[in-house]
């Protein structure tokens, strides 16, 4: 097992790191040498902007997922046993359904001559048709739709462990819901929110399949650029450099989360 991890996780990552310092010849073959050029290109304003935009989209997606998902996770977590299992199953089905199919479903709805515009135009308000597909809005809808279950389930895990007596005690001591939430519920479910953030934020940064389907080529995010360097542009060293920078970003997030978890454990 350890061998497998070394061979197919550690070594490939190391090779990626090495490639990021290489050059390529005019045929797109990788030439082993040492250059900082790829990294200089990563920090070129064009790519920097794409990086920042990708992080912005991912952050917006994560924020929407937390705000929309928390009440659901909380409701399910505090529901009676029978309802809890039923509702959980209802969240599990989309969780397990291929994100590709779920994204595709939105194309039918958002398309110019699609369902949403048909409904809007049949209303008497003179709305639409709106150009919805292949817009930033569509990308965010696609990302939220794909990742919301990944936020709900870990938060649910935290809510389920939450001792109801603590909330009751707070109520008995005269705290209203507005006070109990920031003082009791939020701190105790923070580990779930943090886990959900890792599951949503990091993958959403580079999810090129959803941006491809919902954004067309109009909203390039970092995942699309990386994928493009490896397939169409065949500039592997530059793609590798982008990958390494993204890897550093991922590692930082993951490490921060592990630290946070370790601190929670030592307190709890």
């Amino acid at each position: 097992m350890l061998l497998w991890l070394l061979a197919f996780v550690v070594v490939p990552s190391a090779i990626l790191f090495v490639y990021s310092f290489c050059e390529r010849d005019e045929l797109g073959r990788v030439v082993f040498s040492f250059t900082w050029e790829n990294y200089q290109r990563v920090f070129d304003p064009i790519y920097l902007r794409i990086f920042v935009r990708s992080i912005g989209y991912a952050a917006l997606t994560t924020a929407i997922c937390i705000v929309a998902g928390f009440p659901v996770a909380y409701f399910i977590g505090r529901a009676g046993e029978a309802w809890r299992n039923r509702l959980l199953l209802l969240v599990m089905v989309p969780f397990w359904t291929s994100f590709l199919i779920r994204t595709y479903a939105w194309i039918t709805i958002l398309k110019q001559e699609g369902l949403l515009n048909a409904v809007l135009q049949s209303l008497p308000f003179g709305l639409g048709p709106w150009d919805l597909l292949y817009t930033p809005t569509a990308v965010v809808i696609g990302l939220v739709y794909a990742y919301l279950p990944f936020m709900i389930l870990p938060i649910y895990g935290s809510v389920e462990k939450l001792d109801g007596a603590l909330i009751e005690a707070a109520h008995d001591l005269g705290a209203g819901p507005l006070r109990v939430f920031p003082a009791v519920i939020l701190p105790l479910t923070l580990p779930g929110i943090a886990a959900g953030t890792l599951l949503v934020f990091v993958p959403a940064i580079a999810m090129f399949a959803i941006t491809d389907l919902m954004g067309g080529a109009r909203v390039p995010l970092i995942g699309n650029v990386i994928q493009n360097q490896f397939l169409q542009a065949r500039d592997w060293p530059f793609g590798a450099a982008l990958g390494v920078v993204f890897m550093a970003l991922f590692a930082a997030t993951y490490w921060a989360l592990l630290r946070f978890r370790a601190r929670e454990d030592s307190i709890g």
Binding site: F8, V9, V11, P12, S13, I15, L16, Y19, V202, P203, I205, A206, M207, F208, G223, I226, Q227, F230, W236, G239, A240, G243, F246, M247, F250
Partner: peptide, 12 residues
């Protein structure tokens, strides 16, 4: 992130 696993396996 799957894309990182994908590209690192590809170069490997």
């Amino acid at each position: 992130p799957e894309i990182l696993m994908g590209i690192s396996l590809l170069v490997f």
